[in-house]
Amino acid sequence: MKPSSKITQVAGTFLVLCMLTSVLLLRQVDRMRGGATLQEVLYISSPGALKRLSLGYDGLMADIYWTRAVQYFGSKHFAGSQHYDLLAPLLEITTALDPHLIVAYEFGANFLAPKPPNGAGMPQRAIELSEFGIRNNPSEWRLYYDLGFIYYMELKDYKNAADAFARGSRVPNAHPFLGVMAAQMAQHSGELQMAQMIWSTTYQSTQDRDVRANAATHLRALQVEEDVTHLGNLVAEYHARTGRLPDTFSDLQNVGLLHEVPTDPFGHTYKLTSDGRVEVRTPDDFPFLTKGTPPGYVAPPPRFLPSD
């Protein structure tokens, strides 16, 4: 006269089994489908058509496409891919659906413009995306900053970069850095300082995890480059004074050229080679290094460190 305990047990057991099996099967299906999923998302590639199809739920659709863009770039980047063909259309659709999604423009400036493997290598489309953002959000100083950033970092176009930073500096509540940047761009002096300033501004002002990690990586590389240049100059001076190369950094300390032995951003000491060059000990940790790597070193595809 009670609910059958046999049926309860059988159905309950079966329910749990089915639940576990379904998860396992789904994982298997995921593995089989691989990248196919993201290829499919762009069967409708016209932002206008999508906006109409989203039946007024464009905000939600924009969020969905934003997630897709981040997922797409993240998975490709992790796999060390050289091609990011869908990144531009995904970001364009996202911003068409929601023109006020500032983080999407920022993402575009940081990852659409740079050359592969660090980005899609499409600076022109990144510039168009930023200009579209500025038209829709003229009072967002970040967008002018992003635009100047692309011109400076990828195209070394100081005139347009200065112009973009200057436009941004006139927006109410703009970061004071923009005015300084505009002036420096006009003279294009102090490359290292400028780069450091730009990356630290990005690092401090961004909300996006990937963008921040990328900026941190760049800042570390700049720090190393600064150290390597400085130490290199000291080695040259030691050579000029004593007529021979130092064996260790303590040789530099002994003659009063160096107070403290510097370490790289991860706390490792630098390496002094027998031919007097200064090198970083773990070059793989500094993807964007232009100096301080062993001769003939080929950098692996850059990855952000999740700890940033």
Partner: peptide, 21 residues
């Protein structure tokens, strides 16, 4: 196929459990 069958079976088990009680 296996996924769909297993998922449907799971939902049916749930229905049976609730309906039985």
């Amino acid at each position: 196929t296996a996924y769909a069958m297993v998922y449907a079976a799971m939902a049916l088990c749930g229905a049976v459990l609730i309906f039985e009680h």
